[in-house]
Nucleic acid binder design. Structure first.
Lengths: 256, 256
DNA sequence: CGAATCCTTGAACACCTTCAACAGGGGTGG
DNA sequence: CCACCCCTGTTGAAGGTGTTCAAGGATTCG
């Protein structure tokens, strides 16, 4: 059994691929970690077998053992509140992490469910300490990811406090667009694996409202949709509706 | 004109106190750090001089250099969106940290303003690396704090998505109660340093709605209020209104 | 092929917002 | 020290955005 240093065997053993050959490498945990150290990290990262649509990664209440990174597909996380109703906390695309909210309590506070066939890496949180010298840089990277998460949550707070239904949906579509683009996919055309119910729930609206908005966006020529495939015909207009300052020269925003 | 800088009637000792003598020690960064290591941490932590009501800790756009911990008083953080309007992101009480959302970008994304005379510790983020052996445990502690923050944000998301105005205000009052209790203060009686405007903004409601609710809560005997001092006359009822499962037997939080 | 779930559209309603007017209070300047 | 004024807070009435209720159509999956 040879540890592949090539990117050749992508197709056959997708779930065996090492971090440095992973196609979301530059978005995931190992950024900024040296090659030698990466091999150590590789050793403790476990490649989960693909999860079917509807399958669970973990449930609310489960003990917190792993941090998860999405390799392909998409996941939704949600909490159950008061028995029946649930609240969708977020949607995770390839290169995004799950479970960070459980570090403090040691117990998962959300459930994570696959929206489509997905593959996921499992990183045993407490074995990160075994990494010795690199523990510090991995932890630093983790902190950056968590910081990004907090920032995202703050923007969501603005969205839920200040924006109308129309603005929320526009912002949601643009957010997906941006994230897909970062992952090397098209920014104006993608598959939406989440249902109207999930979107409505996530955005704090009723399903009917979301449905009406999709219809209206389509009438207005902003989008075209067939089945789960969506095309943003006027991304610029959607960005404006979402309240995103047009083509921001993001100049000084950078960390080092 | 010299009168304006007249602020130094605070006991000097208060802002010189070391971490292990701080009265929010058990809520702050140094938990779980050994005594010897604590001295190292103490060395790099700078005790900020007290900030007057309305004073700023940092502004949105400032470079990220420090993490801040509130020692006394209270701070609000907010982002400015589209020029005029702002969004209150949160209120920080003693023992709570600020600036964690800037780790990723290296630039503060919020402004932090004192709601009353407050004192604050300044922790130079990049000098945490100097801590050598303990860097790992400090970083772990930081991750726990950030994890807690993320969890809090998720609960806020539920609040903003699912709760009515009444439930939101009840939850807000109960949240303050809980946090004051954790800090050794009364759970049913405290000073609210934030204005109705800030509360409304934070909860995604109009000021008028908040004002009406306060009046109604008072009519119904749930609270009594005089100036900024509030007394929760029926904490239990408020908790129920907030949707908090009464007297939580937190033992076995099972999944389903 | 049938059942369950998801999605759509219409109409009535509710909660909260907006607009408006006024009361109180704390800080500043005369 | 008092008057003034801005800011905060209160209360009422009208109005709007999104919800709820209802019913029917579309899609998926065993």
């Amino acid at each position: 059994m040879l540890k592949t240093e090539f990117s050749a065997s992508i197709e056959l053993s997708e779930r065996e691929v090492a971090c440095n050959n992973c196609n979301v490498f530059q978005l995931c945990l190992p950024i900024g970690i040296g090659k030698a150290d990466l091999k150590l990290l590789d050793k403790i990262v476990k490649r989960h077998r693909p999860i079917k649509r509807g399958g669970y990664l973990f449930h609310s209440g489960d003990p917190f053992l792993f941090i998860y990174a999405v390799k392909s597909g998409s996941i939704k996380t949600y909490t159950s509140i008061g028995g029946e109703t649930q609240q969708v906390i977020g949607f995770q695309l390839p290169g995004e992490m799950l479970g960070l909210d459980a570090i403090d309590t040691g117990v998962h506070q959300c459930s994570a469910k696959a929206l489509e066939m997905s593959s996921v890496c499992e990183i045993p949180f407490h074995r990160l300490e075994e990494l010795g010298d690199i523990v510090s840089s991995v932890q630093y990277q983790l902190m950056r990811l968590m910081s990004k998460q907090i920032l995202h949550d703050n923007m969501l707070q603005v969205l839920l406090c200040k924006k109308t239904a129309e603005e929320r949906l526009a912002a949601f579509l643009v957010s997906l667009s941006t994230r897909f683009k970062e992952r090397g996919f098209s920014a104006i055309e993608y598959n939406m694996s989440m249902s109207r119910y999930d979107i409505a729930n996530y955005l704090g609206l009723a399903v009917e409202t979301i449905s009406r908005l999709f219809s209206r966006f389509q009438e207005e020529g902003l989008i075209t949709e067939r089945k789960k495939h969506i095309r943003l015909r006027d991304l610029n207009q959607l960005q404006i509706m979402a309240g995103i300052p047009a083509t921001v020269p993001n100049a000084s925003v950078q960390s080092r």
